[in-house]
Nucleic acid binder design. Sequence first.
DNA 1: TTGAAAGCGGTACCAA
DNA 2: TTGGTACCGCTTTCAA
Lengths: 333, 333
Amino acid sequence: MSRKSSRMTIKDVAREAGVSISSVSRALNGLTANQELLQRVNDAVKLVEYVPSQIGQSFKTQRTGQVAVAVPDISNASYLALVKECQRVFSEAGYRTTLINTGGNSGDDIELIRGLRQKYVDGLIFTTIRPTPELIEEIEASEVPVVLVGSLKTAVSFDVVSTDSKQAARLAVEHLVSQGCRKIGLIGGPLDTVPGRNRYEGFVAAASESGVFFEENIVILKDFEFDSGLEAAKRLIEQGVDGVLGSTDILALSVLHAVRDAGLSVPLNVRVVGVDNSEAARLAIPRLTSIDLGAIDRGRMAAEFLTSRLSGFDSAPKTAIVRPRIVVRESSL
Amino acid sequence: MSRKSSRMTIKDVAREAGVSISSVSRALNGLTANQELLQRVNDAVKLVEYVPSQIGQSFKTQRTGQVAVAVPDISNASYLALVKECQRVFSEAGYRTTLINTGGNSGDDIELIRGLRQKYVDGLIFTTIRPTPELIEEIEASEVPVVLVGSLKTAVSFDVVSTDSKQAARLAVEHLVSQGCRKIGLIGGPLDTVPGRNRYEGFVAAASESGVFFEENIVILKDFEFDSGLEAAKRLIEQGVDGVLGSTDILALSVLHAVRDAGLSVPLNVRVVGVDNSEAARLAIPRLTSIDLGAIDRGRMAAEFLTSRLSGFDSAPKTAIVRPRIVVRESSL
DNA sequence: TTGAAAGCGGTACCAA
DNA sequence: TTGGTACCGCTTTCAA
């Protein structure tokens, strides 16, 4: 016996229960006082194995019950943490979560926002490290609520959740200095990204204030690949740094490798700090000190901002800034 | 000037272009020969900034344009790889991807499959390590196409993609033996999971065939947590093993830590092999030998199976088995 | 080639 | 409280 029955609709339930489809709808949505009718409808629902069509409901209500979370790269630990946390909050609030890997390309980003007009989701959490004016404009024009995760320089008409990248770099430098480092290197991300730029500026500011030697010890990468980091780390070690800040935990791991390859030791000869406080940092040998940018907190707040808007609260644009904190481990002791 | 215009529908385009809505629909779907009408419609579309409603289209076509990928834990490297690859294939095929974190609970799994009747997605890639008979039954009854990623003992009426976990363990043991290990330990996953059971059996078979000492060196964990692995590894080291197979890369990393904590060295005193060939394995110190279970290949095949079904190809149930391969690195040399 | 109209599966208004 | 019915946006059949 094939169970692949053609879909049962509300009509079938109504027929089976001997009532009108309106009554079925009401019964199913808890708008019926009549116990007997309710019973008949429930029996009929069981009998025909009725399940309301999400598509039909969406059509009527113009709500999909879905939200999207867009990140440049889901492989990146902090985006992964953010996505997971959003998903948790949304799931609790009764929304399904659609995952979008943007690749970080700003043209595609704009297309993504524009595509929201198709109304395939009720709202969007959008993460970007390159918030161009065009992108901002497109988000402001969006009919679908968008919450942006990322740092902006201007005031905007939508909700924003960000972290203080400059402060993150500062925490790292101050820690390294307090541990006795006097010649600190930076392996930074691309300067045309907001976090890349901010961490660079934070590093420079904190380093010069501390009076440590640093100016020749800055390497800016075009990407965040481990191999690029390895190359950069090798250079820094040749210049005799005694402390390095890696822009991500992966880049910091590359420093651990380079130091070992050079026959030196972390933290004896070189102290290392990473950024993201990812699992990779916790499990590294030696365990890696890392700046936690609060990806989980950002995810939670962004998701809460969005669910709030989706519930119809039409407040002024909200902003949340998560403060980074340093998690000290073996690699910088 | 607010851009938050209320949605434009096909009617607005029709009115603006001075044609019927049927003509607009045809023009938009490339079913019009008349160049002038086409032009008028396109102009009207631009003028009113019309974007077809996904909801309206879904309602008519009974297709959502979405597929779901369900995994027990997105944090797990191999599931992550699988999800990413599925997403890539689906995106190319014009489908959006919804991510579902199941948590691996089998009751919830059944609810998930049952929930498909709501028709919120067109198809599902489902990953499980505990394929209960009830679950199988539910999948077979599903009206929505499901592709299962995981090993099954029985023949089923849906597509399945799996890997050979037994062979994976065998590869690892044979490699360790060939490197000179004579007392090999296993840190295994729960035996009530299919991969946990299969890896255990593969390990036992390969170890006894090789004639190496192993029987007292098996620790089966209740979970895959790093800390549990650390504890287990400590025990194995006290028993004097010279080789360890960790059931996942994370567990293998815990062995690296435990060996170091014991003042010993990998691979000099203990050789270590993990499973998953994750980024964590590539970046570990020392770099970790790992069994690649072909997560990416499985993701690709599963996604292709599903898109094929969604395109209406109603073939017999397909099965694909991905062969594991070993990636030898420093930790076992 | 074009337009009119039915219908996909629900919800909610209105009248009984 | 209940049933009849309009309607959400789009595709597609059918007739002109």
